[in-house]
Write a protein that binds this DNA or RNA. Structure first.
Lengths: 144, 144
DNA sequence: CGTGCTAGGTTGGATTTTCAATCCCAGGAG
DNA sequence: CTCCTGGGATTGAAAATCCAACCTAGCACG
């Protein structure tokens, strides 16, 4: 029933592509765990945020952990799939820093190695950046 | 007036984060240049697609080039900023391949070096993947 | 001439989402 | 008893999206 090209980009965006989903994930990557904090730091409406978090939990991107029984209270943690989105968030951040944001980058990361983090996406085989001229698709998903 | 954390991820998503924007860009990366083709291959409504393409052109991500005068007809090309989004699309594709898609990856790329492309995002300093444990933010944008 | 086709949209109206504010519930503090 | 916190659910209005139909300009067919 889904139209358009069969494509993992489209499938990924069906999971994390709605408004607020990636921003909620950003806050969770930054260490925020609780609903109210995520709502405030993203600016999302509480009802929409609740729906997004539920969807991300259902999709296996986040895990909802109860940290108190009476009354029940929860924290959100990234799963492995959620942590695997970190390169995408860092890529968006780098792109926003370079092409959208005015002035100093608002957020700075330190890599596990100790250096200030500058993320680059490379070809695993040769180590050169992926967006070199000459990079091209050799198999395409069909359009339905 | 914008609520939430000052953050380049949010700013990037204001430009390319709406529905269909990244899928339109995907088609353009795959070499499609014309409105009807992009509409068909993404599945987007024509009115929404027209609005998105206009916005991406205004934002400097795409360039609209007239290739015929009477009647006027146009093609869409990525700008440098648009090409700089390729790592993000490839990252989403890889994530979708691994965590969402069932079966063989529908799309395959060849890198400029000749190898089948497997994209990895690394720390420019040490060359290790960015999502190693221990990677963390050292400066945060303020929440407004 | 009249019909149909192509390309690149725009328009209208119905349907969905999103929004902000309020409400709810449970427990603890004063 | 009342207020505060945390984590949502509810509600009614506003905005975005969807689909189908239409438009314009030129070309081609019969």
């Amino acid at each position: 029933m889904r139209r358009g090209r069969e494509c993992s980009v489209a499938e990924a965006l069906e999971v994390v592509g709605e408004r607020w989903s990636l921003l909620a994930l950003r806050e969770i990557m930054l260490g925020e765990r609780r609903f109210n904090q995520i709502a405030e730091n993203t600016g999302a409406s509480r009802d929409i945020l609740a729906a997004r978090l539920r969807k991300l939990v259902d999709a296996g991107v986040l895990e909802k952990v109860q940290y108190e029984d009476h009354p029940p209270r929860f924290e959100y943690y990234p799963t492995e799939a959620g942590r695997a989105l970190q390169p995408i968030l860092l890529g968006l951040m780098a792109w926003g820093d370079k092409y959208v944001h005015q002035g100093e980058p608002p957020t700075l990361w330190r890599h596990a190695c100790g250096a200030e983090l500058h993320a680059v996406t490379i070809c695993e085989h040769c180590g050169e950046p992926v967006n070199a001229p000459g990079t091209h698709a050799i198999r395409l998903g069909a359009v339905h």
